[in-house]
Design a protein around this nucleic acid. Sequence first.
RNA 1: GGGCGGUUGGCGCAGUCCGGUUAGCGCGUUUCCUUGACAUGGAAAAGGCCACUGGUUCGAAUCCAGUACCGCCCACCA
Length: 926
Amino acid sequence: MALPPTYSPSEVEKRWYADWEARGAFKPNVNASQGPFTIVIPPPNVTGILHMGHALNNTLQDILIRWKRMQGHAVLWVPGTDHAGIATQNVVERQLAKENLTRQQLGRDQFIKRVWTWKEKYGSTIVHQLRRLGSSCDWSRERFTMDEGLSRAVETAFLKLYEAGLIYRGYYLVNWCPRCQTALSDEEVVHEEVKGHLWHIRYPSASGKGEGIVVATTRPETLLGDVAVAVNPKGGRYRSLVGTNVLLPLCDRSIPIIEDEAVDSTFGTGAVKITPAHDPVDFEMAKRHLELIPPNASRKDWTSIPVRVIDSDGRMSRSNVPAPYQGLDRFECRKKILEDLEAQGLLIKTEDYGTSIGHCYRCRTVIEPTLSPQWFVKMRPLAKLGIEAVEKDGMRFIPVRWTKVYLDWLRNIRDWCISRQIWWGHQIPIWYCTSCNKPDVQGHGSWVNGQYVEPGMIVGHREEIKSGNPPPCPTCGKKVSLVQDPDVLDTWFSSWLWPFSTLGWPEQTKDLNTFYPTSVLVTGQDIIFFWVARMVMAGKFFLGKIPFKDVYIHGIIRVEGGKKMSKSLGNIIDPLEIIDRVGADALRFSLAHMTSEGQDMYLSENKFLLGRNFANKLWNASRLILEKIDSKGERPISFNLRFMTVPDWWILSRLQWTMEGVTKSLSDYHFNDAAQLLYGFVWNEFCDWYLEIAKLQREDPDIAIVQNTNHLLLTVLEETLRLLHPFMPFITEELWHRIGAAESPDSTIMKTPWPTPESAWADPNKEWAFKKLQTVITEVRNIRAIFHVPPKEKVSLWVQGSQGIGILTQHEKILQRLAGIDRLMIKAKLDRPKGSVISHLPAQHGLDSWDLMVPLEGLVDLAVERKRIEKEVQDLETRAKSKRGRLEDPTFRSKAPADVVAEEEESLKELEAQMGKWAESLKQLQ
RNA sequence: GGGCGGUUGGCGCAGUCCGGUUAGCGCGUUUCCUUGACAUGGAAAAGGCCACUGGUUCGAAUCCAGUACCGCCCACCA
């Protein structure tokens, strides 16, 4: 059963994943010795395809999950997907467009059916891609934010909030995306700095006397909806004009000049045009000056005022603006208005001006702030719970700095606009009596006993309303036909329930009782507001418990050069491609290796070579170990302490430290530390040193030594595989079986216990002994390299020393093989052989210092040797000097801790001794 | 306008919370090596006044204050 010389991941990965899944290995172990450990996946959008961010996010989760599973916890990782309202609707609409259809033509019911069809067909793409990564989610518990249970949870949540008086509808200026034709929450708007202009426009005096007023604006097209011009009450040159009227250009409406604190008299011209229907600041200002609203209009009902000049499709109003502008695209209209103003001599000045403009986070369309009736959640009371979570309930962010970001957002929270004017999503569980509720009163209900009500409004569960026995209309008392509010809820309204809705809430299921609260949330900084904060509030509000104790925020992945990865830039590094090329394990290991706490990371393709090479190294190490064992046809079953060699003790000890370090690092979410420890152990200690020595030990005539070595090789490899398993699940499982560690083909490394260090085997003294050997070998190799001794040429090694010298005599074979030494001469006092190179090893690790001499008759270039020694002396001199300086400083002696002083003294003494030796050698050379 | 992060060999990054040997790693570079695990490899090596200025300290890459540049987030200056 010899292993092929290179590891080929794709076959192995496919085989093991199918196997794990088939035998239900990802399900929580009901007989677990430790308590539950739960993670809910940040549900990717159904429309999504796996990108590097997902790869990182899920790799980290899987590392924790597999680690905790091996530690014996009842581990549950709940997977699922998000219905992603707008994104999914967009995708299906685009599909329809190819058939020359619109969703309106199809009608709501048909359209939704279409989306479901799409979801059935394509919605599991990402879920399958997560499998390729090796994610050990319990797929039997997979959820979808629109599935029946979760829809029930959404309605229940809405009703509970409603009953608590936290839901209301209002007629507000909201972020409107003219392309998606829906309102968006503040968090869904992406502000981007855009180069624009500041136009100075004259509004002529209405009385004909005076110059009028000049306003500065970035959006001239909105002047058609102006209701006033405002100046600061304290200062500015227009202060005297307050109370007078000006004429709105191009429509010849007379509007007043008012005063308001919000105006900055030093900005622009000091005068601001007020367009309440299309600017949030103006809206707030207008609310402070209700007198602006024409007396014939309802003060609540802004629709009847001719101020809304841009329709929901982003074109100018068909009725509220002068004929030439009607129906024009808003940006076209801007041009035309500027031309017309210019023609009338009212455009005074055009300045370049950079301003930040809101864009739809889904389609990048420029947001049009627009007045419309929308549903909101009152956030203040909920935010209080979110703040409590960190201040009282012990929730913590890793890295901690996100705590402040989180708290700041909660402390300045604004109400959450939860209604969306799209079709794909959870329809709002509110019904209206068709005879009592008129569309034009929308958003003007009132508060009764702490609850928001509109005439004819019924709040309830879908099944109850649709059961055929709906409650009577609370207003007219009749059982007339009810129509459901057409809006759907923000996608995040279902996501914020995810940690418990996936476990069965609102039912008190066994899963909910067992696995809630979850253990840790692993996610990116970009959704702290969208998702994390809201989940915390929801968890506390609906269940009275924080949904997770730890929130691990990992960095964002960028491409080398600092840009964000994006399709349009064509700089995507596709994780699936990487998996095809180097394997999932290599991808995972590379990612973990570079994940330093919460730091953003730059990616380039060649970074995955690290993982690939490492996997290959591991594979080949196993191959080496296995080859000899298999050819002998026998497996060593035990080992005997009597036959343990110095290198054996060393590698065992190193393994213990590795176990401890990896466990500690994972506990602290220091994934990179853990990966680096393992990398270093496997490559630099196990492979570079121990395997080379093991080759020799396996040639030993004593079969006990051979057996012992083989046993040790297998033991160390097996434990290493287990330590590596969370990072590299596939290759470790494969090798674990190949080395015969599995009791039966049915067992899996996944369920083996996590290695724990044995303190008896972690022995620094034994490590030192071996390190001495390493030092000598390295030193000889160094000399050979400097003097170009051909690899096949053997050299003699003369060692002058006494203490602890046995380590060398006992390991002549190792010295011979690893350093090419054919003769070893050891004495307490030696005359330096002619033509030899000398090296003075410092005293360390409890041994006296040794002098190494390598006779290289005829090979030594004196100039090179002199240079080598001079450099050595110089280095020592520098170090000694700084130490001397410090030791001569009386304050150091009095203030520094005694052990530090002692250490310094000791090391200076040693340095001086060394320098003496080297100086002597240098003299001999001359 | 606020807040946060970064600045360490040619490149990409650890180390900084919690100050104390000779500051680590990967890539790249130089020299040598086709010795039966692995050239996706082995051996040896070169390369860093830890952005700058000042402070605290016996001692600073590490703590404090400030400066510069880069990046991110939040915010109603039209």
